[in-house]
């Protein structure tokens, strides 16, 4: 079954919200494992996990250091070095926070690496969201590969003229400066020409736009989205209710 992009987006967002609201490391771990399995099945595990490692790794490390060693409410001391105390409560708190963050990041990365951008742009257009919004969204995803490709061509041209990409960091920075000039000039020139082309093709025209690409939105998925939103709202409400007496103390 092909998921409508809004269904995937709703599922990812509601899972992230519910996981945060539940504040249970067991649920967080379950969400992380399910996300990873789905990433493997979609063939994007490498990209999702490496992006998650870069994003969440440093954060988890800092949580463990901060709360594992310095948790004022910690009572069960496991080890002690001067002012630093490893407490069971601190480690538990760090684990909760790290697992929750990891689950949210994984589920959102899974969405961003599996969603069909053309489907998403088309669905946005069909929802009467200004097409410029969808264009910016899609451009953001296509700009980086374009810049990388352009930089590679420029580097090749400069190496062919005797630029030696070896030596100190300073030499590399110097080479980077030389690559930036044609890159930025090229991007500005491209933007100018493309702007003229887009304008001529009526992109900036006010009023409604239609979409050539048709994205199926079966009633079952619409019901699922509504239910997911209700459940996520309920999870937040329950969390607030559960925390209320504690918060008022």
């Amino acid at each position: 079954m092909r998921l409508h992009p809004f269904t995937a987006l709703t599922a990812a967002a509601c899972t992230a919200v519910a996981t945060t609201a539940a504040a249970s490391w067991q649920l967080s771990f379950a969400v992380s494992i399910i996300s990873s399995v789905l990433a493997v099945r979609a063939g994007v595990a490498g990209r999702v996990l490496s992006a998650a490692a870069v994003t969440v790794g440093p954060l988890c490390l800092s949580l463990v250091v901060l709360h594992g060693l310095f948790f004022p409410e910690g009572r069960t001391v496991l080890a002690e070095w001067g002012p630093a105390r490893v407490t069971a409560e601190g480690l538990q708190f760090a684990l909760d926070l790290a697992s929750r963050t990891s689950a949210c990041v994984l589920v959102l990365l899974l969405f961003s690496f599996t969603v069909s951008v053309p489907d998403l742009v088309s669905a946005l257009a069909a929802s009467r969201i200004p097409p410029q919004f969808g264009f910016v969204l899609a451009s953001t995803l296509t700009l980086l590969p374009a810049i990388v490709g352009s930089l590679d061509r420029i580097r090749q041209a400069q190496e062919a003229r005797g630029l030696l990409l070896r030596g100190s960091l300073l030499a590399h920075l110097g080479a980077l400066r030389l690559q930036m000039v044609p890159l930025v000039q090229g991007l500005i020139e491209d933007a100018g020409i493309r702007g003229q082309a887009l304008e001529a093709r009526g992109f900036g025209a006010p009023g409604p736009h239609t979409s050539y690409r048709h994205v199926d939105d079966p009633p079952g998925q619409q019901i699922f989205r509504a239910l997911a939103l209700v459940l996520a709202a309920a999870a937040v409400a329950l969390r607030l209710l559960a925390s209320w007496p504690t918060a008022s103390l």
Binding site: P118, R201, G202, F203, P208, H209, T210, S211, Y212
Partner: peptide, 15 residues
């Protein structure tokens, strides 16, 4: 096909 249709989409041409 979608690239060809881009200009028509902007003119709100029926699908």
């Amino acid at each position: 096909a979608e690239e060809l249709a881009f200009g028509l989409e902007n003119r709100a041409t029926p699908r």
